[in-house]
Write a protein that binds this DNA or RNA. Structure first.
Lengths: 191, 191, 191, 191
DNA sequence: GATGAATGAGCCTTCATTCAT
DNA sequence: AATGAATGAAGGCTCATTCAT
């Protein structure tokens, strides 16, 4: 193995895929076009990803990791639940507003049939600390009684996504959406 | 006139499309398979829908109409806002839980590139009364001050969808999810 | 047989076919479009012509007949060979310039594979008198010795067609082309 | 570089296309059959020619070039007009008689709707020297006064084609047709 | 490892023709 | 006879993947 696989090329492929999947959709974006935009030969793509589905799964994991990083960096572990939740909320909204293509691809991926169970699991792995925070809050009896945990985290995601959608379509009200959204979530969920 | 176009055949095609799109995805479902499952010849599909994209757009409008019907039938126009919202909430959750395929297709459609603007408009048309209800509530100052309207309706949808997801994956807790979900929404949004 | 086949409809179909074949070509013009432009139902076309090839063959015969009529009407049977040839020449050029669509279709038909031998024979039948004129001229020793008859009539057609082509692309020189063309033919062919 | 595109395959495809277009017509000859007869996979045809129309246009240019080569090789540039014209005449007749398939395809191409303007221009480019010869003859006042130039070259082609047609259908009279044809042309056109 | 030509299965759509009304 | 919906074979083209170079 004279030349080792290049991380640059791998990233170029993932970037090109993100762009094309966002613009044309998962199936309408040909691997040949992805290669071209990545600046590699058609065949090269398949030395980095065995199949197109492989590429898609890898991209999913990559984006999820990126999102988790964005959410969890500088996480104020020592602060109270509200502060920590607010941190996560703000970071998520920022990432989503700043990365519309990644978000669009993620939306397509989540409803597609190509994600393997492994990928789904791998995708949620980086969010363990986030889940832990929710459990912690439950134990502290911060949330309303008998709100199912899974409903709380699912709702958080749902409301963040709604907030990002609005922010993207009307950026001038970004701050308003972010604050109102969180307020809605918080008062919906706490006693 | 010769044989008139048959509503039965049209419906059979839409049904088969729903099934296949849900199972395999929009692009992975061949029109030939749709025809076969609908019990018509391959060419017949194209006398009812000029192109596959046409079929997809028609299906979108049909499902949205069905959903609106489900939500708005027996709508208690005279009752107070909370009751009316709760009606809509319950009907939406029921429809979503009972029609997982339609819902899956809808999710794919919403992130796909094939919907025309006309279809999107036609799809939201049946929900005018729902929008009116929200405006009515605003005027009655039922919601928290300075919550943007668009955030309220968007959040409602987001939370219903979250609720349905959980219901589908754990039907035994259906009632709990439905009640908790609505409670979250209501307390998040009202003063 | 309540209603008899209508000559009007038959003609409407032949006319529409001429137009469409000229504009799009023999195979690119669908029978459905021909029917539509003829103002009849798709199926009706097939009660007048058993197959598309049938229609094409009929059209060939019709156009050839039309051309022969144009050439031979008012034919000056009693005049000398040159006058008679000039008559035919002028009539051919006029017909071709005035009927570009028919001419275009004829050109396509002659190189296509759909004409039956019967049609080709039927197509040349109306030109017997024209052939007779040539033979007559031969007997009168008007042409150069040992010019093959078949070359003479073939050349006449070839030169007329060349003349019409030029006339169509530059109508202002119509008279010039017609006179020069005939002069070329006549001096090429006579002693 | 990986496998380079093979001129052999390209030629095999053009040859197969010539054969099939001549036998069945431009539209009746499927690309799949062309590929098969060329000994390549169906998809391979499209790496050499982007579309079927592309292939057709390329074939047109190739045949025209071949014809020009045949006509102009050994062209006696220094000899008088009659000799040069006779050279071109003989070569054209020989090429046409020896290449009936190419000629048939050319005839179909010229009346078809698929040729681009670029192809038509490219097709006449190799005949510039031939056009120059005609202009030369005009300047030398070899032709009859007031015969339009365009009529002269068009007639030459028309008469050659007529001559070839007869030669093909009756090869035993080949020499007679060739001589008589040229004589007709020459005496038709000169003073 | 990198390249891009080669492959061939598969898909959407067209269209001549049939046939129920 | 007239209609136009129904049919299904056929065709051009795409594209993920392989493999010779």
């Amino acid at each position: 193995m004279a030349r080792p696989k290049s991380a640059d090329k791998q990233n170029a492929i993932l970037d090109a895929a993100t762009r094309l999947f966002a613009e044309r959709g998962l199936t309408a974006a040909p691997t040949s076009e992805i290669s071209k935009q990545a600046g590699v030969a058609e065949g090269t793509l398949f030395t980095y990803f065995k199949t197109k589905d492989d590429l898609i799964n890898a991209l999913y994991r990559e984006i999820k990791l990126e999102l988790a990083d964005a959410m969890m960096s500088d996480f104020p572990r020592k602060k109270n639940v509200r502060t920590r939740l607010r941190h996560v909320w703000d970071r998520y909204v920022s990432w989503g507003s700043a990365n519309p293509k990644q978000r669009k691809v993620l939306a397509q991926l989540q409803v597609s049939e190509v994600l393997t169970k492994e990928s789904r699991d791998a995708g949620s792995a980086p969010f363990v600390e986030f889940q832990a925070m929710i459990r912690d809050a439950i134990e502290q009896r911060i949330f309303q009684n008998d709100l199912p945990v899974e409903l709380i985290s699912k709702s958080l995601t749902a409301l963040v996504e709604a907030t990002i959608d609005l922010t993207v379509s009307n950026p001038s009200k970004a701050k308003n959406y972010r604050d109102s959204g969180f307020q809605m979530f918080w008062s919906g969920v706490t006693k």
